[in-house]
Each structure stands twice: as structure tokens, then as C-alpha cells.
Amino acid sequence: MRKFTYLVPKTLNEAISMHTSYDGRTRYIAGGTDVLVKLKEGKIGPDYLVSLKHIICQDQPFLNTETGELYIGAFMTHRSIERSSLVEHQYPILHDAVKNIGSVQIRNVATIGGNLVNAVPSADGAIPLIALDGKARIYGPKGDRLIDLARFFLGPGQCEIQGAEILTEIIIPRLEPRTGSAYIKHGRREAMELPMLGVGILLSLDPDMATCAKARICLGVAAPTPFRALAAEAYLRGKSVTEDSLTEAGKIAAGESRVRDSIRGVAWYRREMVGVLVKRMGLLALERARNMELNM
């Protein structure tokens, strides 16, 4: 591997000043499962790697019980999110996604923030967080800013992070009552694969436990960036959530996707599967919302 100097800052400000002082010759590294692969392949060649691993920060998802907001530190590993029983029970869509990323070995070191800033169209971590209306907290030389994750991705490999900025945290707003959610990574094998398609759905129901009050349908690998199928969401709102209405929503979402042919799958198949999986995940989200209500 090409030689570099490894810098280990303890605070965000220290990291940013290191990045700024060697501008253009540095690269941030957290878990390193993507950065080291790119380094070995010669796709990047920084003189300095600035580690974000030793910056003091939260190591567990934290729920603010006053505001109902969930805070997920960007440097948390997929494994620690997967192991959070809070996430498993209250945010199953996120649990579904992180437990199927890479392998145990990868999840033990790879971070959720790294998954997001890589901004690949197949980022499994992004889909559920967008469906949950998550916001990204970005810290940089000019201070802090918050941006909707739905607007975070600009194109394949491109996101809102500029220069020395660091994604520090994801904030999930309070869940509406009677909410269920689900995510599926669709591929040819169960592990160690990037998804051919990723489908995440969140449904909040009216007190009748049937009418859709709010819907989020978020798709991965169905366009250059993760995106929300807004027309399909609008169609579901106010309707009774049934197999029929979800089938129709699936058709609308399939029409909204900008799928393409790639080594992992062809466009027509991906489009068909958007329809199938939107319905399937919708039914699972409905079931989870009802079960959650029963267990309250």
C-alpha cells in the first residue's frame, strides 16, 4: 500500500484543522473498510489520513425522551446499531438495513457515517434514515449545519460534505404514533453483496389502524441517488392500507424509479421488483405498526 502519515485527532476541531492545514493531500478515515480498499486499488493517494476513530463521541443510539428525537453518532459501527435493542424494536427499518450490510467482520468496524458519505447509489444505511426523515449534522470550519438526509445525496459518490467538513450525527425526529417500518435489501445472495435494489417503507396510521396518515417510500439503486417515491407516498395518504392500495402504490413507485442496467441486474427486472417489494414491505410495515400498538 502507498505510504501515508496517519493522524489521530481527539476532537472535531483538531481533525478539521489537520485536514485544512494539509488541504488537498488528506483524507478522513473512520472504519476504513472503504478508504483502505480505495487506497490499495490506487483510486486515492492521500499523504495524510486523518482518523475520526478516536474522537470522543457517543457509542450508542441515544433517545431524547423529552423531544422523542433519536441521535445516532456518525462514527458508530453498523454492528453497534444492529445490537441496539432500541433500534431493533422502535426503528425496525434501520435494524433490517444495518444487519444485512457486508459481513460481521465489516460491520464490526465500518461506520454508518462512512456508509452515508461514500454516497454510493446502493448505500443500505441511507434508505431507512431518509424514510425516517433523518437529518444530517455536518460540522466544518464555519461551524455546524443541519440538512435533510433526503437532500444529502447529490449524485453517485457525491454528497453535501465539502472540504474539511465532517458528518457527525444523524438525528431522527419523533416517531408518529402507530408507525411501522420495514426495509429489504434485494439481491442474489444474502450476505457480502451490494443490493440490486433497496426498498424501505414507513407507514403511520390513523387511530382506526387502517388509514394511512403518513407514508415514506424510499428506494435505493433505483436512481443515481437514494430517493423518495413522492407520488406513491401521496397516493397512499388518506387511503386504507391494503394489499390493493399497496399494489397500486408499488406501480406508481416503479414508474417513478430511474432504474438502469448494471452488472447486478437489468432495468426492467428492477422496475418490476420495485412494485413487488413496495407491496411486500408495506404489508410488513402495516403488520409491525399493528403489533406495536398491541404491545403498548
Binding site: 476504513g32 473498510t33 483502505l36 480498499v37 490499495k40 486499488e41 454492528r79 457486508g102 459481513s103 460481521v104 467482520q105 465489516i106 464490526n108 468496524v109 457480502m192
Partner: peptide, 21 residues
């Protein structure tokens, strides 16, 4: 590149790919 797991070792109780560490 973290695909095959042949380099798996245990760091602080957790399995990791030593080629990407």
C-alpha cells in the same frame, strides 16, 4: 479487500478483516 474473510482475526473480542485494519 474484505470480501473473503481469510484474514479474519479477533480484536477486543470482535471478528475483523485484518487486511482492512
Amino acid at each position: 479487500s474484505g470480501e473473503c474473510g481469510a484474514c479474519t482475526v479477533i480484536v477486543d473480542g470482535a471478528a475483523v478483516n485484518s487486511c482492512l485494519y
